[in-house]
Design a protein around this nucleic acid. Structure first.
Length: 121
DNA sequence: ATCCTGACCCAAG
DNA sequence: GCTTGGGCCAGGA
């Protein structure tokens, strides 16, 4: 009885997990395309992954994947770093190490914005 | 099912 | 530059 319910619950959970995994995988794939010295916005990464309007999930994906991704190359609209305090300082530091130049508080997007290759979608 | 939250985005004033 | 309001979406309590 109870066992059956548990099994069903587990299956449901798995299906959900796999679904989101696909989306996150696509997002990670897109994020990985950003080369050193280049950057992209959350919205662009989401769109490049095939999920426009899912900029928020990009955050989830980046947080989850942790150090396996060039998370520092993903910025908010206008080239703004959206992280706070220490994390934000580290992101800026990492980018500067890659040669990314800042215009005040924002990244010089005109010079460093990565153009995603549409045929890789 | 509802409510809240988040490394968001954008147009207005 | 600023704040405000509205829109978007998935995940967790």
């Amino acid at each position: 009885m109870k066992k059956k319910l548990e099994a069903r619950e587990a299956a449901r959970k798995l299906a959900r997990a796999r679904k989101t995994e696909t989306m996150e995988a696509a997002i990670r794939k897109a994020a990985r395309q950003i080369p050193r010295g280049k950057v992209a916005t959350y919205g662009q990464v989401a769109a490049a992954a095939g999920y426009p309007l899912h900029h928020r999930q990009v955050v989830q994906a980046l947080r989850g994947a942790g150090g396996l991704l060039p998370w520092q190359r993903v910025l908010g609209a206008g080239g703004e770093i959206k992280l706070k305090h220490e994390a934000g300082a580290e992101q800026r530091f990492r980018l500067e190490m890659e040669g990314v130049r800042f215009k005040g508080k924002r990244v010089d997007m005109a010079a460093h914005q990565h153009i995603f290759r549409t045929w890789e979608l």
